[in-house]
Simulated assay, not measured.
Amino acid sequence: MKRLSIWLAAPLLAGLAHADYRLETVAEGLEHPWSLAFLPDGGMLVTERPGRLRLVDADGALREAPVAGVPEVFAEAQAGLFEVMLAPDFADSGLLYLSYAYGDITANNTCLGRARFNGEGLSGGEVLFCASPAKRGAAHYGGRMALLPDDTLVLTLGDGFDYREQAQNAGNHLGSLVRLSLDGRVPDDNPFLGDDRARPELYSIGHRNVQGIVYDDQRDELLINEHGPRGGDELNRIQPGANYGWPLTTHGVDYTGARITPFRELPAFTPPLLHWTPSIAPSGMALYRGDAFPDWQGDLFVSALAGQQVRRLIRDEGRVVDQQVLFEELGARIRDVRVGPDGYLYLLTDHADGALIRVVPAS
């Protein structure tokens, strides 16, 4: 294991108390790593966007050969292999979930699959859900997952970039969250059931590109972050059946500087808890419940690509009261942030030669 020689007190916003930490490089040579899952034996699984699943052993060694049995993915620009998530009964069943882009440049979208992992490879792979319609291009897939306490799964989806108006169309899956049972069936209490004009899998609509999702079991809240255009990145609390407004409301503007809409909020839509303008490009998100950093207890951590940082969202009774910028010293796009079973934070840097980094107390 290589150790970065960085010791510091993190830069602060609003005079917050210093949080001392040390950064350790666990694994290097990962090609655009996207997601991370912790195995019961102390190892880790890491997805690489080009379509590989990599195993980091409990001793921190990155296995040279990728895990066999991963489904074929469409890998181009933002498309590829996205999230890996263990089933709740993984220790007994070996089941895990993968989200990924399928198809080709002319017709593709986000897919959800399930397979068994035996410590070496995947077997028994099955497709549980594919978003529709298939779209042209290679942008805005979402791809994050979260488990809810009722044994259902929420998958985030993007608007396909060129199809943003479809985020207001409940007749497709673009720009939405979908909720599924663990075997891919539609739960019988999904909020759009009974509406013949809507897809039964839908859980919420009006999103742009959701790449961070967290369920807070202590507050029974599902929280997401999503990319805005130029400005208007959002943190949202999800209510079943709610519409979050994109592209009819946003705090951002188009990449050309043109106005997308004159409205930042409208009564018909659920407003964000907060927005980042200018954009930080939020990617992953984690809720801290650990012992290694007591001052971080209950706070949210949002990794950022364009911002090249992690934003700590300090919460009081679930309300964000301040923010702290962390890990800018890496000078890297940070794709994901996770809380490990050991209470440490883990980061994935989004580069062709990306790394898995562990954040531990300085002393």
Rank of each mutant, 00 (worst) to 15 (best):
R179L: 00
L177K: 01
N190V: 05
F90H: 09
R264L: 12
A101N: 05
K135D: 03
R54F: 10
L202A: 04
T261V: 14
Y255G: 06
S279F: 12
T256I: 09
E317P: 10
G252K: 07
D150G: 10
C111F: 14
G29R: 13
L347T: 04
F301Y: 13
R3V: 11
H227Y: 04
V325P: 11
G137Y: 06
G290L: 07
I357R: 07
E221F: 04
C111H: 10
G137E: 13
A131T: 05
E226K: 08
L36F: 09
E201H: 11
Y100H: 12
R3N: 09
A87H: 14
R63A: 01
E120T: 06
A61N: 14
W296V: 03
G103Q: 11
A9T: 15
D57I: 00
F82D: 00
K2F: 13
L223P: 00
L157P: 11
A65P: 04
G241M: 05
Y21F: 05
S283M: 03
S35P: 03
S132G: 09
L223R: 08
D295R: 15
E234N: 12
A355R: 15
L45T: 03
F301G: 08
G307Q: 06
T110V: 06
E234Y: 10
F82M: 10
I334C: 04
A19Q: 15
L235C: 09
A198D: 05
G42I: 08
R22K: 05
L274F: 14
R136P: 02
N169S: 11
G160E: 03
F192D: 01
A10S: 13
A58W: 08
N108D: 08
S123G: 08
N108H: 15
A91E: 07
F90C: 05
Q323R: 15
G125R: 10
V325H: 13
L95M: 11
S123P: 11
L53M: 04
P133H: 14
T277P: 00
G158M: 01
L153A: 04
W246K: 01
G232I: 07
V359Y: 06
E328R: 15
T270V: 15
D162T: 11
A91F: 08
G15K: 10
D92E: 12
T250C: 14
Y100N: 02
V320R: 04
G232T: 08
L235Y: 11
R311S: 05
